[in-house]
Amino acid sequence: MVEFSGKVEVINKHGLHARPATQFVRVANGYSCDISVVFDGTEVNGKSVIEMMTLGAECGALLVITARGKNAPEAVTALQELVSSWDN
């Protein structure tokens, strides 16, 4: 199975609050591969808004996104681009 990981920094002022977490999950759910996110030693399911918010990732947090399965590299790239685009 294809596994692909990438890092991305949360650069928006208010961090991983509800709206960005929801956007992340909507993009993640567009892919059939499994997606996990690690921050500060905690790994969560990247397709669950609740789990994403348990990370408490503030501005400056470095997330590691890992996708396993079909289109894994594309999924990671799309999510990295999304996180980098947040501005609030």
């Binding site: 961090g15 609050h17 789990e51 408490g56």
Partner: peptide, 14 residues
């Protein structure tokens, strides 16, 4: 404090 409140609330409801 918003993100830390969300962290706490989502940890409860998960």
């Amino acid at each position: 404090k918003h993100v830390s409140i969300l962290k706490w609330a989502s940890s409860l409801v998960r």
